[in-house]
Simulated scan of single mutants.
Amino acid sequence: MSDGRARALGWTAAALAVCLLAGLLLGTTRGVSDGAELRVSDSARLSDLVRAAQAKADELAATRDDLAGRVAELQAQAAATDDDVAAVLADTAALEDPAGLTARRGPGVTVSLTDAPRGADGRYPADASPDDLVVHQQDVQSVLNAMWAGGAEAIAMQDQRIVATSAPRCIGNTLLLHGRTYSPPYVITALGDPARLEAALAAEPGIRVYRQYAARYGLGYTQQASDALSVPAYTGGTTLR
């Protein structure tokens, strides 16, 4: 057999092997995927998971509220015929406001923090790193610390009450608070003497640093005093773990 004919037979055998292998892979893929698309975008799946988890959380919250209402009815019925139960419920009710379980309204200060926007050319400052352009957990914590130091009587962040067990956490450019996620701007409202609150905010070192970055890179910081602010009641779990 000549070298040319041997070479041609070799290429033919190789091509046949490749075709057989490709067919085997296609058959295996179809079997594994059961005829559906095997590789789809992860982002769509993640968004679906987030929506499903939030829907489930809302469903459970509705169930919790319904059960809480039924418990309150039973407690009221028991208190009507039992003085000991009535006394315990009275003691419990006296602790609800200090624990943040009642909505509050009054004078105070609102602070809003937000990430830096792009410039008119669609770009960020050339000398900025990604960390320079977003609100960090320490920025949020500096505002909260200053508000407590300024004598805040009640604080809310976004649409939730801040209590002793609250732990706002920034993950990337999102905020996690009491199991819910939020995007900037982050709005923090404190009830109390506006003058004291504003003095405490001005004295907080972390806020001074943040405002320097805000002036340089365009991070958002607004502060507004008001005579009529409101914060909601805390509605999460009260069991300390």
Rank of each mutant, 00 (worst) to 15 (best):
P184T: 01
L144R: 11
D132T: 00
G4V: 11
D66A: 14
R123V: 02
V140L: 15
A13F: 09
D127W: 05
A156G: 14
I188D: 04
R123K: 15
T63F: 10
S129C: 04
L113M: 05
P125H: 02
Y210N: 08
V85G: 05
A79Y: 04
T189D: 06
T114E: 14
V143G: 09
Y221K: 11
L177N: 06
Q138D: 13
A8S: 09
L20R: 14
A76F: 00
V140G: 10
R64N: 10
A120N: 06
Y182W: 15
A72L: 12
A55E: 12
D227I: 01
T12N: 08
L38Q: 00
L144C: 08
R196Y: 08
V231F: 11
D34T: 02
A103M: 05
S129V: 03
R161V: 01
L24E: 05
A36F: 06
R5T: 12
V135Q: 10
Q212G: 15
Q141C: 07
L9E: 09
A149P: 08
L191G: 09
L16I: 09
V143E: 04
R208M: 08
P185T: 00
Q158C: 10
E59M: 05
M1I: 12
A36R: 15
A202S: 10
S230R: 09
G23M: 03
G192P: 01
A62T: 05
D58T: 06
T12I: 13
D83C: 04
G106L: 12
D66P: 06
V111D: 02
A22S: 07
S226F: 13
R216K: 06
G220K: 00
S226K: 05
P117Q: 08
Q224E: 15
E59I: 00
V71D: 09
A72T: 06
T239Y: 14
P232H: 00
S41H: 11
T235R: 05
P125A: 02
L176I: 09
R123Q: 12
L219P: 00
R241P: 11
A233H: 11
T114A: 14
Q141M: 15
G4W: 13
D42V: 14
L95R: 11
G206C: 07
G237C: 03
L21P: 01
D66K: 15
A13S: 09
T92A: 00
S226M: 08
S183T: 11
V32D: 07
L60T: 08
P107S: 04
V32Y: 14
R123A: 13
P184D: 02
